[in-house]
């Protein structure tokens, strides 16, 4: 069944149900707010340029599992160090950031990236399904926009991953809009 309209409550049309519906609607509106990013500024532990990395790499180089798992995977410190092995770039500003990386490596602590609000835990989203499988897999930018061109980490999601964002695209591409496929 595709996402239900709130009016179709079946054969029972008690006042109580209407009341509950109103309460729920309100609550849904409230709850929608936690899907959209907060406006407080996000102070990341270090500068990171997707654009600079994109010159020598693809998304998959660092987001290792994007074709294989549900999660694309945040690169671990080990993944960073794999390429950044003591060689410094010419740019002094970049060097400053690279030294931060070295320090994390020396201390053997993961970089405490702050994640922007993501999908709630009750939603199943598979990068593998969207980007790795099928006849016409999506490209990363279909959902992540121009992140590859950004020089700093974004302060908010460039595209809000609301339910309608998913459902619209699924409709357009004739993918299933069955609740079961995403809600768990």
């Amino acid at each position: 069944m595709s996402p239900r309209k709130l009016s179709s409550t079946g054969g029972i049309s008690l006042g109580a149900i209407a009341l509950f519906a109103v309460v729920t609607l309100g609550a849904l509106v409230l709850s929608a707010s936690f899907l959209s990013p907060k406006s407080d500024s996000v102070a990341q532990p270090m500068r990171f340029s997707h654009k600079a990395h994109f010159e020598d790499a693809t998304c998959e180089t660092c987001h290792l599992y994007v074709m294989e798992l549900a999660s694309a995977g945040t690169p671990s410190l080990e993944d960073c160090v794999d390429c950044h092995d003591n060689t410094l770039s010419e740019n002094a500003e970049d060097q400053l950031e690279e030294k931060k990386l070295e320090k994390y490596a020396e201390e053997d602590t993961e970089i405490p990236w702050i994640h922007l609000p993501r999908l709630t835990a009750d939603i199943y989203f598979s990068h593998r399904m969207h980007a790795g499988l099928g006849e016409k897999p999506l490209e990363c930018k279909n959902c992540h926009g121009d992140i590859g061109k950004s020089e700093t980490l974004p302060q908010e999601r460039q595209i809000a991953f609301t339910m309608s964002f998913c459902v619209d695209c699924h409709e357009k591409r004739q993918a299933s809009n069955d609740c079961l496929m995403c809600h768990r």
Binding site: M1, L6, I17, D178, L180, M181
Partner: peptide, 16 residues
């Protein structure tokens, strides 16, 4: 259960 749910939280999946 499905028809009495006021919010559509309970549903019958068409595909399955």
């Amino acid at each position: 259960c499905v028809p009495v749910c006021p919010t559509g939280a309970t549903y019958q999946s068409e595909a399955t």
